[in-house]
Design a protein around this nucleic acid. Structure first.
Lengths: 135, 135
DNA sequence: GCAGGTAGCTCACTTTTGGGAAGTAGCTGC
DNA sequence: GCAGCTACTTCCCAAAAGTGAGCTACCTGC
């Protein structure tokens, strides 16, 4: 096996998130993750940041989750991790050029949820009301 | 009903997804959900669809997950569910006007993942390689 | 009177996820 | 020579999510 004779990577192979097992679906799932979106958002807004700063900014995230999320984003080439071997070690995270291309979509999603939270909350109340009175 | 005396919905209260327990964070999480994004995408592309059509289109989704996702989206006012009490009952789902406003953000995210899957896959390989050779 | 077709719901079970606490490493200042 | 700092990593356990099969309801056609 292996013997990949003619590799042509100029055009992306046709991925389809609606197909099971498609890597684009995995990717979509990964970046749609709760903490990933917030990390991406925070790094998009504030630029390079240290671990503890991110931790403070994403109120409620556990160390474990933050590390895990950052690792995954680094592995996916979206976040660059730089270690400064100083006295107490310093680590900084920032978006890679690829990560920067995600800023737009993530911002759009975040802003949408900000703008429409009220409406959604109202819709939920109405739905629950209707359910309760047996509508 | 409900005697809503002075409702002023012009300005949204200040929500912040970076705060724990903020409804906008919940909402972000909800719409960032794997199946939610795909359902929203499918309904955005094809318009009103029946349950079984959606099931076929979202390859690999289980009935339970699809029902659950559709219910959540309906509750949030993003999807409209219409039941036609015909011979074998027919149910159709479509985006509400609020759901339509989400089309843009969801499309942006989906297209981003389509366009950048190759790069991310490459980044992953590189990362894993480096890890394996103890980089 | 029973299979067939739609759109679910329910239940038992497995897998995954996430929290919290404790441990690690390397140097520093007292 | 030991606490203290940062940035993790590891472990255990509880909770949540997801799977698959079987059940419901209603009418139809044979």
């Amino acid at each position: 096996m292996a013997s990949v004779a003619t590799v042509n990577v100029t055009e992306a192979p046709s991925y389809d998130p609606f197909e099971r097992g498609c890597p684009s679906r995995d990717l979509l799932d990964r970046i749609g993750d709760k903490w990933s979106i917030l990390v991406l958002g925070a790094l998009g807004q504030h630029g390079r940041s240290r671990f503890t700063d991110l931790r403070k900014r994403l109120a409620g995230v556990s160390e474990k989750m933050l590390t895990q999320t950052l690792r995954a984003l680094e592995r996916d080439g979206l976040v660059l991790r730089t270690v400064y071997p100083e006295v107490p070690v310093r680590v900084e995270y920032e978006l890679t050029p690829l990560g920067v291309t995600l800023r737009g979509p993530v911002k759009a999603l975040t802003e949408w949820s900000l703008e429409h939270t009220t409406e959604v909350l109202a819709a939920r109340e109405e739905y629950d009301d209707r359910a309760n009175r047996g509508g």
